[in-house]
Amino acid sequence: MKRSKVMELGVGLFMLAGILGLVFLGLRVSGLTLGPSGDTFTLEANFSNIGGLKPRAKVTMAGVNVGRVSAIELDTDWYDARVVMELDGTLEDRLSRDTTAAILTSGLLGEQYIGLSVGGDPETLADGDSIRDTQSALVLEELIQQFVSNMVSD
């Protein structure tokens, strides 16, 4: 069997390029970070209506991305939605207890995300705590319905 060095090199480079491409897809395209990604803490928040919020939606504070939604489930005690968020570890014990969470929409048709805004309480939220003050998603149909019924009652 003849072994050509050029051919071996070609196949080697081909496979290397494939693996590098996969790394590129991982780091640059899907935004995986090689650093210790375990450095997060979780907060919970109950919303009466989450609208179109999905797992993996981003959580922002003053427009800056600080985490993502890790789970959404129905809270059977109150029959509302419990949203679990994973936030950047540097914010642990730094957010005031009266922080509010609102479900916002980016643009008119964009995806929904959670916006946090800090209050003035000196006490802070720890890992696993839940945010009391929440603002549900705006559901367009409800708004219109409200508007129409107000007009009728006038």
């Binding site: 996969l22 897809l25 991982g26 640059r28 395209v29 899907s30 935004g31 995986l32 993996r56 981003k58 991305n65």
Partner: peptide, 19 residues
Amino acid sequence: YWGNMQSSVDFIGDVGNGM
């Protein structure tokens, strides 16, 4: 361009399933 891509592409869900 990159930011929106990174926040919406999931490595396992999108890259992995494509593979």
